[in-house]
């Protein structure tokens, strides 16, 4: 119960504040590039601008779930099994779920405007929906109760299984015939087919969203540490009360 000793007083530091300001600047720049400076697509018109949020969102979700799995693996393999890895894992999992939801919503709107439908049960869309549901389950498993170590162990095992869905989602457009288009940039065999400012705006979106993810995950990890500390203090107080009860 000594985690209270290392508990941070708040979730912000000078570095996170700098990171936050840089993220805001890049987001503003992305807004201008995405909505004003970059041109319309020859077929899709202005609808193409959804890409500057849709693609970075799913990228951040992949990154977040990758981090969840990596931190879980470090927790399970580490000698001292520090709970900081579990908290990073949980924080990244929560943010990943948020960004998959953003990706599903923006993708659905994009689909309505280009495909003519909000949703199809195609391999890419279905596997992404399944990924979203899996990580909702992961977050629910984290809240099942028990000690911090019990929570860390069971959720780490689940995170290591759930990460196997990422390649399934990403390569679904190559394995099955799908309505969803193939990768434009992430496919090493494909010729990158995004005109100048479109490609720039997309990369700007990827960087801005990655920084936003970093900012969110640091803060959420710290707030989870505070939540754990509050729970530990409650436990310490209860043990103390029992001791008193026994001695009186």
């Amino acid at each position: 119960m000594n985690s209270a000793v290392t508990t941070p007083r708040g979730t912000g530091t000078r570095n996170t504040r700098i990171l936050g300001v840089l993220t805001i600047i890049l987001m503003v720049l992305l807004t201008f590039c995405g909505l004003i400076f970059s041109g319309e697509d020859i077929n899709q018109g202005s609808t193409v601008r959804i890409m500057y949020v849709h693609v970075p969102s799913i990228w951040v979700a992949y990154l977040a779930f990758g981090m969840t799995a990596l931190c879980s693996a470090i927790y399970l393999s580490g000698r001292n099994r520090s709970l900081i890895w579990d908290r990073f894992s949980g924080a990244a999992g929560e943010i990943g779920v948020l960004f998959v939801a953003v990706s599903l919503v923006t993708g659905s709107l994009w689909g309505r405007l280009t495909w003519g439908t909000y949703w199809v049960w195609d391999a890419r869309l279905t596997s992404t929906a399944f990924l979203f549901i899996t990580y909702i389950g992961y977050l629910a498993v984290r809240r099942l109760g028990g000690t911090h170590r019990q929570r860390a162990r069971r959720s780490a095992v689940l995170a290591l299984i759930a990460i196997l869905e990422i390649p399934l989602v990403h390569f679904s457009v190559n394995v099955w015939r799908t309505l969803h288009q193939k990768a434009s940039v992430a496919d090493p065999n494909a010729k990158v087919a995004l005109d100048g400012l479109m490609l720039f705006s997309l990369f700007l979106g990827l960087i801005a969203f990655t920084m936003l993810f970093a900012w969110l995950v640091i803060h959420r990890q710290r707030s989870l540490a505070l939540e754990d500390a509050v729970a530990d203090r409650g436990l310490d107080a209860a043990i103390e009360a029992r001791r008193e009860e026994a001695t009186n």
């Binding site: 970059s38 041109g39 319309e40 697509d41 020859i42 077929n43 899709q44 018109g45 193409v48 890409m51 280009t114 495909w115 003519g116 439908t117 199809v120 309505l179 288009q181 193939k182 990768a183 434009s184 496919d187 494909a190 087919a193 995004l194 005109d195 100048g196 400012l197 479109m198």
Partner: peptide, 22 residues
């Protein structure tokens, strides 16, 4: 009874320079 439109992974800016290509 149902049509879905596919769009490719090629994104071309709508401008004069691209008209010839179109």
């Amino acid at each position: 009874d149902r049509i879905e439109v596919k769009h490719s992974n090629q994104y071309i800016e709508k401008n004069k320079g691209r008209l010839a290509e179109a």
